[in-house]
């Protein structure tokens, strides 16, 4: 291994049908500016396509954004599919319009962190860096 640290690789995806990608795109750029390599899959992705892309890209993290209210169903499915594909090392985090009362359930399902609207992007980058240390 080189003396330099491993680059953090992140996949940002929008599962489901909603096209509100402002937050996702802002996070993509912010993570780039935090020195990470970010793959963006675009809007209207099925959980299958997201998990498949995460595996092919060999990422450390998958960030999911959903504003349509379908998060419980979609996020949980992505986590399950990642596990089924043997990508256990991939950490899933999320953002979007997620009611506070849904957060415990999502965390239990394996979404490690949820960043509500208004979260500074540097907080997200910081969290990823801290989480990457355990990889």
């Amino acid at each position: 291994m080189n003396s330099k640290k491993r680059k953090i690789r992140v996949l940002i995806a929008k599962p489901g049908l909603d096209g509100h990608d402002r937050g996702a795109k802002v996070v993509v750029r912010a993570l780039r500016d935090a020195g990470m390599e970010v793959i963006y899959t675009g809007i209207r992705q099925t959980p299958e396509a997201i998990a498949g892309a995460a595996v092919q890209e060999g990422v450390d993290f998958v960030g999911l954004s959903c504003l349509s209210g379908a998060h419980n169903h979609l996020f949980t499915k992505v986590v399950k599919l990642l596990r089924a594909k043997g990508a256990r090392g991939v950490t899933v985090f999320a953002g979007g319009i997620i009611p506070a009362s849904d957060i415990p359930g999502l965390k239990k399902a394996g979404v490690k962190a949820i960043f509500p609207p208004g979260t500074p992007t540097r907080d997200i980058a910081q969290w990823l860096r801290a989480a990457a240390k355990h990889l």
Binding site: G16, L17, R44, T46, S68, G69, A70, N72, H73
Partner: peptide
Amino acid sequence: DLPTQIGYDSDHALAEGEVGKV
């Protein structure tokens, strides 16, 4: 809702979780 906006009936696979949401 989004399935209606994107031309999927409520029983389409891609509508799952989205029916009646937005």
